[in-house]
């Protein structure tokens, strides 16, 4: 090798080294930039928040110059806009109309079982098969049961959920029902969990029990205001519930209380209850004695397919303005099995 060749060889090597170093630095910088600036739910590909500066997600729900309804929505109604994604896996994994989880081909996460039943049930079907027998009625005017104001609402998806980011679990509104109270709903979830497979009747991990940490009963009762009031000896509560009895003192089941360490008031006997139903886990430590019953222990948020028989169907004389014959009132299980599940008589 001549000197000239030697110098050229060294130069080539140095050039390759500099090039490799430069490429490494640029690559790492790019990775760092991506890690530090990309949205947390990048893999979510969600149109609800964590937008990038050049996001294309606005167009999922908005048309700047050709909106079909208020808030520049592309569809004829809020509900139609939401279900344009949240139905049949047409965009979102959560098919709220079918009450089923659709793995829409999003790699990198596992938030449910493809075809599995959503924990909140559905508005038309549950588990993409069973017809709903009781649900929150969308796009229809109605007074919430247990209301104190008598105000009639036309429920839409955004009555309960905010389409954009918020501090509450499941994008639940902070000021639901236009309440001046900022109600926080927190969760123990480490990762999203949309399906009921973990809390089914068969004993299992019951991960669902960890979903809710606090606040959901207070949130529900922003509309169903009376349902947090026990009444009777816990405080006079004369109220016309819409049934055959008119304005009389009412009594209600306790909410946000542990199901263990109870006392039989009549006989002064302490006892504990157990259940397979979801409970609120205040401390995030799994199914323990301090877990509390909440609205979603018995009810599904969207709609359920439970079947009512016999006495579980209120007669027309009894129900008054209460739900019609056969309405399952969003109960998780047939008849009053949610009662028996705790009060195992």
């Amino acid at each position: 090798m001549t000197q000239t060749e030697c110098i050229k060889s060294v130069g080539d090597g140095l050039g390759r080294t500099i090039f490799a170093y430069t490429a490494f630095v640029l690559t790492m910088t790019l990775v760092m930039v991506m890690l530090l600036s990309s949205p947390v739910f990048a893999a979510d590909d969600s149109p609800h928040g964590h937008f990038t500066s050049n996001t294309d997600k606005c167009k999922s729900c908005h048309r700047v110059h050709s909106g079909s309804t208020a808030s520049l929505l592309p569809e004829q109604s809020i509900t139609q806009t939401c279900v344009s994604c949240h139905s049949n896996g047409s965009g979102a994994d959560t098919g709220v109309m079918q009450g089923a989880y659709f793995d829409a081909g999003h790699p990198g996460h596992s938030w449910g079982v493809n075809g599995g039943t959503l924990v909140g049930g559905g508005f038309a079907l549950v588990g993409n098969s069973a017809a709903v027998t009781g649900s929150h009625q969308l796009d229809a005017a109605g007074k919430p049961y247990g209301t104190t104001t008598g105000v009639s609402y036309v429920l839409t998806c955004v009555s309960c959920h905010t389409p954009h980011e918020g501090p509450n679990y499941r994008l639940l509104r902070r000021n639901v029902a236009d309440s001046p109270t900022d109600i926080r709903v927190t969760s123990n979830e480490l990762d999203k969990n949309y399906c009921v497979t973990d809390y089914g009747a068969a004993p299992g991990i019951q991960e669902y029990t960890r979903n809710y940490k606090s606040g959901i009963a207070a949130w529900c009762t922003a509309c169903h205001a009376k349902y947090m009031t026990r009444g009777g000896v816990f405080g006079a509560d004369v109220y016309n519930a819409g049934d055959m009895y008119g304005s009389v003192t009412r009594y209600r089941h306790a909410i946000d209380v542990p199901i263990t360490g109870r006392a039989d008031a009549a006989n002064g006997i302490a006892y504990n209850l157990t259940t397979n139903l979801p409970l609120q886990d205040l401390t995030g430590d799994g199914r323990t004695a301090d877990d509390t019953i909440t609205c979603l222990t018995c009810h599904q948020a969207h709609g359920g397919a439970a079947i009512m028989h016999g006495a579980a169907i209120l007669t027309s004389g009894q129900r008054g303005a209460l739900p019609s014959s056969g309405d399952s009132t969003l109960l998780r299980q047939d008849d009053r099995n949610v009662c028996r599940d705790c009060h195992n008589l």
Binding site: K226, G231, A241, Y245, H309, I313, D335, R340
Partner: peptide, 15 residues
């Protein structure tokens, strides 16, 4: 699947 609870009890509208 006990429907019988509803024979005597109301969870939210008891009197």
């Amino acid at each position: 699947h006990p429907d019988a609870c509803a024979s005597c009890h109301r969870v939210h509208t008891a009197t």
